[in-house]
Design a binder for these strands. Structure first.
Length: 881
RNA sequence: GGGCGUUUAGCUCAAUUGGCAGAGCAUCCGGUUUACACCCGGAAGGUUAUAAGUUCGAGUCUUAUAGCGCCCACCA
């Protein structure tokens, strides 16, 4: 098999020109599509976590793109029908907020333009902005099947959402009703528990008196005095000797004068605050439960914008915080206040706007989630779905085992409108409810205004994108998917819900493996944010360094599940690695011609360095395979880099110049074939990390096949792994290091060629055959052999590795005293190592119980160290004489 | 209040079933060697947070303590 390589390789990798050219070529050839694999190929599918349709690429997107594209390219090279299905999310709240801001800037508002116009403007905004993020993903090299791109609000997915909703309704798992919800006053919508984030804040704890009928009062403390207006009871602990006699008495709500009962419940903590508890079932989740238990009224005192409503009496119309002040002042005037004190507590805020969320009574749609959760728990428990790293399984179980019904309705305009209709009955405008695809027959039906939580449609993503519930072809071939790669921050929001809904609607887990990555953080662990100004913009990096260094850095900076701290110097290093690979390719390119036969020559025709580097290569391939199998992609990347930069380039490639420039034709050919094979394997291994560079470089070495993107993934040739060869070579390289050290110590001009003399004998025989190693790596002229009985060369430094002893005649540079000192220092080092090894081998238990190869290794080490010590001692004695 | 993660060189991080603690950046010394100065050679830098334990052997496993971080939870 012969293959030509492109000639005239450019001096540097011009990523800016190459990236778009290769991307368009790959895509035009259909290589991003699973159909490019064999017809019977096993599918490998990743549903891309859909970014917000109007979003713009940030470093988190870059991380998931790098990881998922790596997985996809790897599986594609392994011959799988690899499908990476891209798409975007309509992102209800986020997008609506963007459009509302736009309207505000125009001096108008959502309410002013009205429902139809607002939706029109939002779609327009989506059309304008919608392509941005997917264009940016392409710049990173994302090899998605763009023909299958989906959007959560497109017709097919909307159909899936309606189907899912109606099915749940028919199964009795969707219900509508008044409940206490987390209400976002600014957005004027309900939000789910998950969308509320509590942060510790310094607030005021207000102590006051609750007058009790018949005289006296109960002291109560609260952080939200305005909720006094909605109190339905005052509770004390039944064992509280101070107050238990008041249970059953009537208390009077301050200012309003409303009468409420004093109740007893052991929920009350006697030690806390004032000892008695005000109960506001309409505005507090605990009190809601308490109220249910005691049959208390759920009074709502707030309007939708969190101003006070008519139940607040004289305070009607005030904002809740103004009311808090005014009420407290009025209570003070009435002699009902006791004191205030600073207090730290957790304040619930909306994950979106950051505003304080108010628990409020509201009629919403819910999913009865327990049956779905049970299946989702079982699927992970039974191993049908595996979470990497597995510690997140515990978090997953804990959440699902304590899950609350899911509030799925949102009072937004942008989203999937709930397929429900109402008709007036008995004076209630929503007295009759119908759920279905179309409005029912008859007059007077009005469609539900609310839309569904964005995560409802996202939960269907892995199968809705493949055509569910229609068009079963793709669904049959590519579902369930294999990999769900996403951030651990949306384990509950998204992953758990996909598993629940996937199992419920398709009876299959939507994916087999969940790989969770962490957050990308700045140096020192700070969160990346635009306001802090520490954000690394991935597109700027791509402009300046190319996509490959960014991808490589992101992948090699982290481990699964852990946040990674992105260090900008690593970007730089990756960029230089790209150049390194390019230069290695250039060297090979200029040393081979198109007539070279591909593949390796028989092992017998290969010299020791070639057999060594091929052994190392195959060990690397095996390691990389292992690391990919356990999803340790970062470590795999680092090992490939280390192999190329620390072994292949500085040693083998340098040594190969001997054979290439001075060898006979057979040696030249064997070396060329080895070089090409090595570089070919490295480029294949690196392709999933750095697709552009590797594809382009591959063109310049002889290769077989149309493109690297569809080339085969390397497999380790275990027969090529040779411990003996590696051991011998390691000793020679140790010798190289010693000679280089010695040269540096004696300040020998690096350009100066020096002589190297070894005493003849078995120890040096192999070395003499491989004198190219010393010639190329430490600039010696040749290895001269000294007869056994000859005297030591005068004025020579001596380096010793194992049983090999080399003299470096450095006339005029050697100071006998200095040389003796150097050798004595060496001897001390060897002595220390020897002591350690002797101690280990002297330990009977070690010899008996340690693994055989470990013991053997120590024995070899012992022999080498003893030999070296003998050589050096002899040499020191010689110097003295 | 529970749960999880983390603590390794000055900084950012690795270390595959327990087997001589490694990189990058920064520092110091020396180099225009015909693939690469986007480079090459050399050096220095660690009681692996602390304390016990298991083991022939612990960065790795167990327990406790401390710092940092995250998640979950109804003390007003």
């Amino acid at each position: 098999m012969q293959a030509a390589a492109e000639k005239n390789m450019p001096r540097n990798f011009d990523f800016a020109a190459v990236e778009p050219r290769l991307y368009d070529w790959w895509q035009a050839q259909g290589w991003f599509k699973p159909e490019c694999a064999a017809a019977d190929a096993e599918p490998y599918v990743i549903s891309m976590p859909p970014p917000n349709v109007t979003g713009s690429l940030h470093i988190g997107h870059a991380l998931f793109t790098a990881l998922e594209d790596l997985m996809i390219r790897y599986e594609r090279m392994r011959g799988k029908a690899a499908l990476w299905l891209p798409g975007t999310d309509h992102a209800g709240i986020a997008t609506q907020l963007q459009v509302e801001k736009m309207l505000r800037d125009e001096g108008t508002s959502r309410e002013a333009v009205g429902y139809e116009e607002f939706l029109h403007r939002t779609w327009q905004w989506k059309e304008e902005q919608g392509g941005t993020i997917t264009r940016q993903l392409r710049r990173l090299g994302a090899s998605c099947d763009w023909d299958r791109e989906r959007f959560t609000l497109d017709d097919g997915l909307s159909n899936a959402v309606i189907e899912a909703f109606i099915t749940l309704w028919e199964q009795g798992l969707v219900y509508r009703g008044p409940r206490l919800v987390n209400w976002s006053p600014g957005l004027q919508t309900a939000v789910s528990d998950l969308e509320v984030e509590s942060t510790e804040e310094e607030v005021t704890l207000y102590y006051f008196r609750y007058p009790v009928a018949g005289g006296g009062y109960l002291p109560v403390a609260t952080t939200r005095p305005e909720t006094i207006l909605g109190d339905a009871a005052v509770a004390v602990h039944p064992d509280d000797e101070r107050y238990r006699h008041l249970i059953g008495a009537r208390a009077t709500v301050p200012i309003l004068g409303r009468e409420i009962p004093v109740i007893g419940d052991d929920y009350v903590d006697m030690e806390f605050g004032a000892g008695a508890l005000k109960v506001t079932p309409g505005h507090d989740f605990n009190d809601y439960e308490l109220g249910r238990k005691h049959g208390l009224e759920r009074l709502n005192i707030l309007n939708k914008d969190a101003s006070m409503n008519s139940n607040a009496g004289p305070y009607e119309g005030l904002d809740r915080y103004d009311c808090r002040q005014r009420l407290w002042t009025d209570m003070g005037a009435a002699g009902l206040t006791i004191k205030t004190e600073p207090y730290v507590t957790r304040i619930p805020r909306s994950q979106r706007g950051g505003e304080v969320v108010e628990p409020m009574m509201s009629t919403q749609w819910y999913v009865r989630i327990q049956p779905l959760a049970d299946k989702a728990i079982a699927a992970v428990r039974e191993g049908q779905v595996k979470i990497v790293p597995d510690r997140f399984e515990k978090v997953y179980f804990h959440w699902l085992e304590n899950i609350q019904d899911w509030c799925i309705s949102r009072q937004l305009w942008w989203g999937h409108r709930i397929p429900a209709w109402y008709r007036e009955k008995d004076g209630d405008p929503q007295g009759e409810i119908y759920v279905g695809r179309e409005a029912p027959a008859g007059d007077g039906w009005a469609m539900e205004q609310d839309v569904l939580d964005t995560w409802f449609s996202s939960g269907l993503w892995p199968f809705s994108t493949l055509g569910w519930p229609e068009d079963r072809d793709d669904l049959a071939r590519y579902y369930p998917t294999q990999m769900m790669e996403t951030g651990h921050d949306i384990l509950f929001f998204w992953v758990a819900r996909m598993i629940m809904m996937g199992l419920w609607f398709t009876d299959k887990p939507p994916f087999h493996t969940v790989y969770l990555h962490g957050l990308v953080r700045a140096e020192g662990g700070a969160k990346f944010s635009k306001t802090l100004g520490n954000a690394i913009d991935p597109l700027t990096v791509v402009d300046e360094l190319g996509a490959d260094p960014l991808r490589f850095t992101l992948i090699t900076s982290g481990t699964p599940g852990n946040d990674c701290h992105l260090d900008e110097t690593r970007l730089d290093h990756s960029f230089r690695f790209v150049n390194k690979i390019w230069q290695m390719t250039a060297f090979i390119n200029m040393n081979v011609d198109g007539a070279l036969a591909l593949g390796l020559p028989p092992s017998g025709e290969l010299d020791l360095p070639s057999r060594w580097i091929l052994s190392r290569l195959n060990r690397l391939i095996g390691n990389v395979q292992y690391l990919f199998d356990i999803h340790q992609y970062g470590e795999a990347g680092n090992q490939i880099l280390a192999f190329m930069w620390d072994e292949f380039a500085p040693f083998y490639l340098e040594i190969s110049k001997g054979a290439l420039y001075e060898g006979d034709e057979a040696q030249q050919t064997a070396t060329r074939r080895a070089l090409v094979h090595l570089q070919d394997c490295c480029l294949r291994l690196l392709h999933p990390f750095m697709p552009f560079l590797t594809e382009e470089a591959w063109r310049y070495i002889p290769h077989e096949g149309e493109a690297l993107i569809i080339a085969d993934w390397p497999t380790a040739d275990v027969d090529a792994i040779d411990d003996d060869v590696e051991g011998r070579m390691a000793a020679y390289l140790e010798l190289v290091r010693e000679i280089r050290n010695t040269r540096a110590e004696f300040k020998v001009d690096p350009g100066r060629r020096i002589r190297a003399i070894a005493r003849a004998g078995a120890a040096t025989e192999g070395l003499a055959e491989n004198e190219q190693i010393l010639k190329r790596l430490c600039n010696v002229e040749a290895l001269e052999l000294l007869p056994l009985e000859a005297e030591d060369p005068p004025n020579a430094a001596n380096v010793v590795v194992g049983d090999m002893s080399i003299y470096l005649p450095l006339e005029g540079m050697i100071d006998i005293a200095a040389e003796r000192q150097r050798l004595t220092d060496d001897l001390a080092k060897i002595g220390a190592q020897l002591a350690r090894t002797e101690k280990m081998l002297g330990n009977k238990k070690f010899v008996e119980r340690a693994r055989a190869d470990v013991v053997q290794r120590e024995r070899v080490r012992l022999a080498d160290l003893q030999a070296a010590r003998a050589q050096i001692e002899e040499r020191i004695a010689g110097l003295s004489g």
